[in-house]
């Protein structure tokens, strides 16, 4: 599904990714974790083609993404900070994205699920952070793409919406999709993720299931395991 080979990216003097290799070939939920500034978002944006790597290759579904844009038809992306053009109405934004992607979409069930009906005619600049995140989720989930990339999907959500989001993610997984998630909420990761990809200093430090991670670090819960992993030698 996704293949990342020897990826390097520098922002000025700050080397964010240094020779990162990653292969994800089957469906399932993959959590990309790591301390702040470890390159999670840069990795995701490299896969999306928003960040141009200095070196290395990325391919999605066997197609190299360099100088290519059509592969993004197969990706749904939920950005970390929901920035939208403020003068558009929610309805107009959804219509516009549908118009651009020209794919069958299922926004109505999502709008009902997140109770966004009463916000459809409001301008995006007047919405609260949580509501904006819900709109963001609707936009990311309304198409049926084999690859879903969610960057901090839980930001600003109330508990009820969080439960709905988890159900939604599990449903998509049952449909055989590949889902990439970054999050700092370990409880959320523990509940949904099949596999953990831990980034440290621009490289993959650990890749494996939650059980393997706990065993490796001698910890009983994920939060402590993640906190302890950076101090554990890589080949322990």
């Amino acid at each position: 599904m996704i293949q990342v080979e020897n990826l390097y990216k520098k922002f000025g003097k700050n080397e964010v990714l240094s020779g990162l290799n990653l292969t994800i070939d089957k469906g399932g939920i993959f959590a990309v974790l790591g301390p702040n500034g470890s390159g999670k978002t840069t990795l995701i944006k490299s896969i999306l083609g928003m960040v141009v790597p200095n070196k290395g290759d990325v391919s999605v579904s066997g197609i190299a993404i360099k100088k290519n844009w059509k592969y993004r038809q197969e990706i749904d992306y939920l950005p970390q900070i929901a920035n939208f053009p403020g003068n558009l109405k929610v309805k107009e934004l959804i219509r516009m994205i549908k118009d651009i992607r020209q794919r069958p979409s299922d926004e109505q069930t999502l709008i009902e699920l997140f109770k966004l009906d009463s916000f459809l005619d409001k301008k995006l600049s007047t919405l609260s952070g949580g509501t904006r995140q819900k709109v963001n989720i609707v936009l990311a989930f309304m198409f049926d793409c084999p690859l879903l990339i969610l960057d901090e999907p839980t930001t600003g959500l109330d508990p009820a919406s969080l439960i709905r989001l988890k159900e939604l993610i599990k449903k998509e997984k049952a449909n055989g999709k590949t889902i990439l998630i970054t999050s700092h909420i370990m409880q959320f990761v523990a509940e949904v993720a099949d596999e953990i990809i831990y980034l440290l200093e621009g490289k993959i430090y650990f890749k494996g299931s939650i059980e393997q991670l706990k065993k490796k670090t001698d910890q009983t819960d994920l939060e402590h395991a993640i906190a302890a992993i950076a101090t554990t030698p890589a080949n322990a």
Binding site: R72, F84, P85
Partner: peptide, 16 residues
């Protein structure tokens, strides 16, 4: 002003 809009579009299947 349309930076956000541009970022939204960049993740869509459109040529840069």
């Amino acid at each position: 002003n349309s930076k956000e809009f541009i970022e939204l579009l960049l993740a869509q299947p459109i040529k840069r």
